[in-house]
Amino acid sequence: MNQPHPNGPKPARITAGRIGLYTFLVAAALFFLLPLYTMVVTSLKSMDEIRLGQIFALPATLDFSAWVTAWSGACMGTVCVGIRSGFWNSVAITVPAVAISVFIGAVNGYALSLWRPRGANALFGLLMAGGLIPYQIFLYPMVRAMANIGLYNSLAGIIIVHVIFGLPLVTLLFRNYFVSVPEELCKAARVDGAGFWRIFFEIMLPIAVPMVVVVSMLQFTGIWNDFLLGLVFAGRDNLPMTVQLNNIVNTTMGERTYNVNMAATILTAILPLAIYFLSGRWFVRGIAAGAVKG
């Protein structure tokens, strides 16, 4: 019988604490995955099978007709075009809003990291406190302002609203990241003749790539999952996917089609989930880098 090499890795000891930890992790994973499992299996069942009430049972046959209906045939009131148009509306809203807010927030964070007069931290804290105020307080003034400049119920209007509400958090994250960058880098660049923008694009922004990933993912998820601002500011022709999902779920003709509702819900959430699954390690690296620098 082969004996383990004395200098080799020691086998992990099975202790009560380790068993308890893994038991908790498995239970937590099952707790969070159970609703997703229920949604998926329900979306693949026919209505006759759903009426049997066996909510956790696997479908007898895989039926993707509910997914097709949810994408291109589900009814929102009297209009039965599915959630497809809402998907492209959400893309048209989210992509430019994320890009603009991340860029402006990075510039703001860079500028504020250089601005250090007496009382600057207190003033910065007051500015960031505005990001903690609930959206509902700003709705009426924002509606009036957007209506006065002709951007209410428009694609440009909802993009601007998301940029405005996202800037406090984005600026805070970038400022905390940039403030710990050694000043010698900027001083050396200034000696070589670099100005504000050249330092930002050639030095600060490449350094902040991990934070750009984190902020982009946070902004993308927040804007994509938004319901309130999209409902108020987007207008009927630009309703995002979340608003159209609500309209589909609350539209009933004859019977409530749970399989279609579940499929539409998964379609609405699948893009943010895919981004987190595919970019999760970059998100963790960015958070860790920001924590170390901050």
Rank of each mutant, 00 (worst) to 15 (best):
L169I: 04
L273H: 01
V212I: 12
N246H: 13
N153D: 15
L127K: 00
V98E: 04
L229I: 11
N7Y: 02
A263M: 01
L21S: 07
T242Y: 07
I55F: 08
N121H: 12
L278D: 09
M253P: 09
G20T: 14
V292P: 06
F227W: 12
F201T: 15
F283M: 14
A263L: 02
I164W: 14
V79M: 04
A208R: 05
P210E: 08
W224C: 06
G77M: 09
V179W: 10
G109T: 04
I137Y: 14
G73L: 02
G195F: 01
M211E: 07
L245D: 02
V232K: 10
R256K: 09
P6N: 06
K293W: 06
I275Y: 10
L239R: 11
R256A: 11
A269L: 11
I104P: 02
V215F: 00
N148F: 10
I203T: 13
A120R: 06
V143T: 14
W197N: 11
L185I: 13
A274Q: 05
G109H: 01
A120T: 05
A156Y: 13
D48V: 03
I149T: 15
A111S: 08
S90E: 06
G8F: 04
M142R: 14
P210F: 07
S85N: 13
N176L: 05
D48Q: 12
V26Y: 13
G166C: 13
N225Q: 03
I160P: 13
N89P: 02
L44G: 06
G77H: 03
F87L: 15
S113H: 03
G286D: 03
V95N: 01
Q54P: 02
T268D: 03
R13I: 04
D63M: 08
P11G: 02
R118Y: 12
W88Y: 13
R13Q: 04
R285L: 13
V179C: 12
P168F: 10
F283S: 03
L205E: 02
C80H: 08
P272T: 07
P96T: 03
Y258N: 05
M1C: 12
T221V: 10
V161I: 14
L139D: 09
W115A: 11
F283Y: 15
A145I: 15
Y258W: 14
A129T: 11
T268H: 01
S279R: 07
F124P: 00
V179P: 02
R281L: 07
M146R: 09
E184C: 09
R118V: 11
N7A: 04
I287E: 03
A263H: 04
N89T: 00
V215E: 04
